[in-house]
Amino acid sequence: MTRTRSTFASPIVETFGWLKGIEHPADRPLMLVSQAAPVAPPPQELRQALADMVMHNDAIHLYGPVLGLPALREELAAQCSAKYGGRITQDQVAITSGCNQAFAATIATLTDQGDEVIVPTPWYFNHKMWLDMSGVRAVPLPVQGDMLPDPEQAAALITERTRAIVLVTPNNPTGAEYPSGLLRAFCDLARSRGIRLIVDETYRDFDSRDGAPHDLFTDPDWHRTLVHLYSFSKAYRLTGHRVGALATSAELLGEIEKFLDTVTICPTQTGQHAALWGMRNLSGWLAGERDEILARRNAIRDGFPVLAERGWKLRGLGAYFAYLEHPFDRASDTLAKSMVETAGILALPATMFTPPGDSHGARHLRVAFANLDRAGIATFFDRMAALPA
């Protein structure tokens, strides 16, 4: 079996295939709540700055350093140090071609075929796909009723082949924001067992909590255990530019550099310069984006009673996501596919975030609500409430 055949088809690609042959009238257009990405371009001022760079900065069109633009690495290290109250240096930061590549590079560096990585379920499907293609066993750690993983259960899953534990917060797909104490418990567990803790904070800019979401960087030895992943895509609407980042020890980055050099050579220069400009100039704009996402989050919470009356349950809510338990006597993949035609809604079934046959996956849907305004959210609830039993 080849590496790609060892895993499943991309859920995003698969679900877009459900749209073929189905027409949606102009007065009832399709609602896309399947993909967790901004659909709007970057703000005008960033696009203008980027256009000026493309025209006048010759270096932007050439190869750059494998680990990324030094100024961007330095800026990210400084801003993360300030945000988390710890000390992160430029030589502990690398820029990658999207956060998915940051994860792929980390796994390539930490594991060999036959190794194991513990991943809470429901998991982010691209993480699972890369582990499959790497010949690494993803060890499921089912979350509890509050959508949070249990460190004691994780400890029982660690074997001599375990190389890391992966956490995503705010979580994709559940939206759950992991408490600081929970992350500390997982970090202590990983350190005590000599493995790495990979924390993906792609959606951290839309965390509902004020201040640092955890204290992991306050430990002077954080880099010995923690691998921190981040994405600029959501913060500055740079999805098409593919700019992510990771922070860990300089020693581990030396190994990660080998992977990056053979895959992309360097991250896109235009995307890196755009991310740097955004970090230096768009803090106020980003705060407004966060406020709007939190307002939409509140609209989901406030509008949910209309579904609760029909037996639905809101199991998770945060960042871009609402995680819903449905009341119907059919699996979520069947339900989600039928919703395209019956409700004009494309959402992802939780079967795409869980192992085959998992009963949890059969009961839940992920709704990426960030691209719905409040009027759109109201329409979403109207359509969902009208679903036939």
Rank of each mutant, 00 (worst) to 15 (best):
P43Q: 08
P43T: 13
E45Q: 15
E45P: 02
A49D: 07
A49V: 08
A51Y: 10
A51S: 15
V54E: 12
M55Q: 12
H56N: 13
H56L: 13
D58E: 14
I60W: 03
I60H: 06
I60P: 03
I60T: 10
Y63P: 11
G64C: 06
P65S: 09
P65C: 08
V66L: 04
V66Q: 05
V66Y: 07
L67P: 04
G68Q: 07
P70K: 03
P70H: 04
E74H: 05
E74T: 01
L76E: 02
A77T: 06
A78N: 06
Q79W: 01
S81T: 09
A82L: 14
K83E: 13
K83S: 07
Y84V: 01
Y84L: 14
G85H: 06
G85C: 10
G86T: 01
G86N: 07
R87T: 11
T89R: 01
T89N: 04
Q90C: 08
Q90D: 05
D91C: 00
Q92A: 02
Q92Y: 02
V93N: 00
A94K: 11
I95G: 01
I95L: 13
C99R: 08
N100V: 14
Q101I: 10
A102W: 04
A102M: 08
A102K: 05
F103R: 10
A105L: 05
A105E: 12
A105H: 08
T106D: 08
L110V: 15
L110P: 09
G114R: 13
G114E: 07
D115P: 11
E116W: 04
V117F: 05
I118K: 00
I118N: 02
V119W: 05
P120I: 03
P122A: 08
P122K: 01
P122Y: 04
P122L: 03
W123G: 04
Y124D: 06
Y124W: 15
Y124A: 11
N126S: 14
H127E: 12
K128P: 01
M129R: 15
W130T: 13
W130H: 15
W130K: 14
D132I: 11
D132E: 12
M133I: 14
S134E: 14
V136A: 09
V136E: 06
A138C: 13
V139T: 15
V139D: 00
P140F: 01
L141V: 01
L141E: 00
Q144L: 10
G145P: 02
G145D: 09
D146G: 13
D146N: 15
L148D: 00
P149A: 05
P151A: 08
P151C: 06
P151Q: 12
E152Y: 02
Q153R: 12
A154D: 09
A155G: 11
A156Q: 10
R161H: 13
T162V: 10
R163M: 04
R163T: 10
A164D: 03
I165S: 00
V166I: 11
L167E: 01
V168S: 09
V168M: 03
T169H: 04
T169G: 07
P170Q: 08
N171Y: 02
T174G: 04
G175V: 04
A176M: 07
Y178G: 00
A185P: 04
F186Q: 06
